[in-house]
């Protein structure tokens, strides 16, 4: 996690430093470091998609996952209800999860949900405010799906593999 914080800061420092010097060599080196540390932010992968123990699936395609979190796919393959849990829009894990796993920006998810809710054609996911609440809800709600930092995952939930 510390890596995440520092990787936010370091690129900017490198950038500022390399802007303020005149050596071409230093420019190149720092630019590479800058781009590399950005890609590190992207590769941060310390979270998983989790489901209730009762959910039969243990693999899901990226397309289905996006469809579930866009609130379009509403049932598991055995016909039972999918219940989606998310963190608030400005939560860090929510942002990382939606950008990396779903490949959409959080504001796009929000507008998709708003369109469904206020035209009546769908429902919103259920918002949880803490890691504890996410774990508790996914553990106890049949058909639930959510996401958690790896360190918070315990044996009461299933981890889904995303193909």
């Amino acid at each position: 996690m510390n890596r995440f914080v520092s990787s936010f800061f370091f690129p900017i420092r490198y950038l500022l430093f390399f802007l303020s010097t005149n050596s071409f060599f230093i420019h190149c080196v720092l630019l590479i470091i800058f781009l590399f540390s950005i890609s590190q932010v992207r590769a941060d992968n310390h979270y998983e998609v989790v489901t209730n123990k009762g959910v039969g699936e243990n693999k899901l395609s990226a397309n289905s996952l996006r469809s579930i979190f866009s609130m379009h796919l509403k049932t598991w393959s055995d016909g039972t209800k999918i219940r989606v849990f998310v963190f608030p829009d400005d939560d860090q894990l929510h942002q990382v999860f939606s950008k990396e796993k779903l490949n959409v920006f959080p504001y796009q998810l929000r507008s998709t949900w708003d369109r469904l809710v206020f035209s009546g054609t769908g429902q919103a996911p259920i918002k949880v405010n803490s890691v504890e609440e996410m774990l508790e809800k996914v553990t106890n709600t049949p058909g639930s799906i959510g996401y958690l930092w790896r360190a918070n995952i315990n044996e009461n939930v299933n981890v889904l593999e995303i193909k």
């Binding site: 996690m1 890691v131 504890e132 774990l135 508790e136 930092w149 360190a151 918070n152 009461n156």
Partner: peptide
């Protein structure tokens, strides 16, 4: 905040 929560899985377990 996230770090604090993450580094204390024991607390989470208790909560559940």
């Amino acid at each position: 905040e996230a770090i604090v929560i993450q580094e204390n899985p024991a607390i989470n377990l208790a909560a559940t």
